Amino acid sequence: MHQSVSVDHLKTVLTDLPRHSATKYINHGTLTPAYFEQAEASLTDLKLYLVVSNTGSPASEIISAFTQKQYNHVSLAFDRELKTIISYNGGDNVYPPGLNAENLAFFHQKDDASVLVYSLPVTQAQKTFVLDKLTTINREGSAYNLVGLVAKHSFRPNIMFCSQFVYTMLRLAGVAYFDKQPGEVRPTDFIELDYYKKLCFEYEITF
């Protein structure tokens, strides 16, 4: 815990705070037409992919110190090759905090970073519903729910953190396989609360 909550990590998180907002949408239209074209091309694959990661980012390491969990970020993808990874994050100092596309480089922020990929069977209608919801959020705007990590509350619907976002998408699409308040869901819940074995492990990525 002492190693994770280092002075450098704390400084990085505190320096990043002014970029965030708990009450207004600050991320608008970050997802490009190319992203949606790629996602639409994957609609015939009747699975959604859950990407649970141990990225090594300062925020992830601090969260890990308190949760005592190795994996502290979760994302969704429409394809098995992870060309369409999406989640709520801090924007990696490139985009505003909120709903952003991700790539494998995003997960490699320490030498022992790792990624677990699981698939969840869905219908094409359910997968299309999730994509339509992403389109709406991208148009309306979003923000990363940094306050919600502690308060477990969102001031507006499109202000979420990663696990809150993934669970909300699954629940709205009718494929959530455990029952929990979205603001209380943590990344490892998607694995640990899979009592009915809805997920299928696909593969692991190590760097």
Rank of each mutant, 00 (worst) to 15 (best):
residue 84 T to F: 06
residue 56 G to R: 08
residue 44 T to E: 14
residue 63 I to K: 01
residue 87 S to H: 07
residue 45 D to G: 05
residue 50 L to E: 06
residue 18 P to N: 05
residue 84 T to A: 05
residue 58 P to A: 01
residue 21 S to C: 10
residue 86 I to A: 10
residue 18 P to A: 07
residue 51 V to S: 00
residue 42 S to I: 02
residue 22 A to N: 07
residue 48 L to D: 01
residue 73 H to W: 09
residue 59 A to V: 15
residue 35 Y to H: 06
residue 53 S to W: 10
residue 82 L to P: 09
residue 56 G to H: 05
residue 38 Q to Y: 03
residue 85 I to T: 10
residue 70 Q to C: 13
residue 84 T to Q: 01
residue 43 L to F: 09
residue 81 E to S: 03
residue 29 G to V: 13
residue 88 Y to G: 04
residue 25 Y to M: 03
residue 70 Q to F: 12
residue 49 Y to S: 04
residue 48 L to W: 12
residue 32 T to E: 14
residue 87 S to I: 09
residue 77 A to P: 09
residue 40 E to M: 12
residue 77 A to V: 10
residue 86 I to N: 03
residue 18 P to L: 10
residue 48 L to N: 03
residue 33 P to H: 15
residue 48 L to M: 03
residue 76 L to E: 03
residue 54 N to E: 08
residue 72 N to I: 15
residue 65 A to G: 14
residue 84 T to H: 06
residue 48 L to G: 06
residue 20 H to E: 02
residue 78 F to G: 04
residue 88 Y to R: 10
residue 52 V to G: 02
residue 87 S to E: 04
residue 83 K to H: 15
residue 83 K to Q: 15
residue 64 S to Q: 05
residue 28 H to R: 15
residue 53 S to T: 07
residue 79 D to T: 06
residue 47 K to H: 15
residue 29 G to T: 12
residue 61 E to P: 15
residue 62 I to Q: 00
residue 56 G to E: 01
residue 45 D to L: 12
residue 52 V to M: 08
residue 41 A to K: 01
residue 56 G to P: 12
residue 52 V to N: 05
residue 29 G to I: 10
residue 87 S to V: 06
residue 86 I to P: 01
residue 48 L to I: 11
residue 87 S to L: 10
residue 64 S to M: 07
residue 83 K to C: 13
residue 22 A to E: 03
residue 69 K to H: 08
residue 58 P to V: 00
residue 21 S to Y: 14
residue 55 T to P: 07
residue 88 Y to K: 10
residue 44 T to M: 12
residue 27 N to P: 02
residue 43 L to Q: 01
residue 70 Q to T: 13
residue 41 A to E: 01
residue 69 K to F: 08
residue 38 Q to I: 07
residue 88 Y to D: 00
residue 76 L to G: 00
residue 78 F to M: 03
residue 85 I to V: 15
residue 43 L to I: 03
residue 29 G to W: 07
residue 78 F to Y: 09
residue 25 Y to L: 05
residue 71 Y to F: 12
residue 31 L to E: 06
